[in-house]
Amino acid sequence: MSKHFDYYLLTCRNLDMINVMVYDFHGAFESFVGHYAPLYASSLDVTDEQKTLNVAAGIQYWLDEGADPQKINIGLGTYGRGFSLADPNNSSLYAGTYGGSEAGPYTREMGVIGYNEICELDSDWEYTWDDEQQVPHIQNGNQWLGFDDQKSIQLKIEFANSKNLGGAMVWSLDTDDFRGLCGNGPYPILNTINQYLN
């Protein structure tokens, strides 16, 4: 048994739970488009490193190292990360960017947007669902925002259930749609987690 493997087993034995933050894989700290928390890799992910920057690979790593699945909580976001596209006509993964998206009225940080802020956006944003990565993004001109919604959260919870994980952790409560502006009642992300988590 390797020292690396022993470390994971020792760590798991001494912890009640392990919150695995499988998000923030991409963001304005890079110079290209990437979803902050894709469930699976894209066909455009070609390097070994690129293929690991997703929820499924992140969780599987801990399981492969011997972590008890019942101690693992899948990390979920109620926010997203965005970019200012270098070319508004090229919004594919790995398209060039020149910084983060415009700051939202509450988070007030370029490149970060709460789900509650997304729910307040005008209808001229175009919604796109990525069938490979199983996550959405929206675009308006040169602004590209990748985030989680009820559909992607449900799929992540179903993935967690399939791996017999212990539960979920959320970052953060204050950026869920607590006023119900997206039309699904207040706290749609949290309610989706509660509905589908075994």
Rank of each mutant, 00 (worst) to 15 (best):
M1V: 14
M1Q: 15
F5R: 10
F5V: 13
D6G: 08
L10F: 14
T11A: 07
T11K: 13
N14Q: 06
N14F: 12
D16L: 05
S31I: 07
F32D: 00
V33G: 00
G34S: 01
Y36A: 12
A37R: 08
L39V: 09
S42P: 08
L44T: 09
T47Y: 11
E49L: 14
E49K: 11
V55F: 10
A56P: 04
G58S: 00
I59H: 05
Q60P: 06
L63Y: 06
E65H: 07
G66C: 03
D68T: 10
K71V: 09
G75F: 06
G75I: 02
L76K: 00
G77W: 10
G77Y: 04
Y79G: 15
Y79C: 09
R81F: 00
F83R: 00
L85H: 01
A86W: 01
N89G: 04
N90E: 02
L93W: 08
A95H: 00
S101T: 10
Y106S: 12
R108C: 09
M110N: 10
G111F: 07
V112K: 08
I113P: 03
E117W: 05
T128S: 10
W129M: 02
D130V: 12
D130N: 11
Q133W: 07
Q134F: 14
Q134I: 15
Q134N: 13
Q134Y: 13
P136I: 02
N140W: 13
N140H: 10
Q143R: 01
W144G: 00
F147Q: 04
F147W: 03
Q150G: 01
Q154D: 05
Q154P: 08
A160Y: 01
N161E: 01
N164S: 15
G166E: 03
M169F: 15
M169L: 14
V170R: 06
W171F: 04
D174S: 14
D176A: 13
D176K: 11
D177A: 06
F178D: 03
L181W: 10
C182N: 12
N184Y: 12
G185K: 10
P188M: 09
Q195E: 12
Q195I: 08
Q195M: 07
Y196Q: 09
N198E: 09
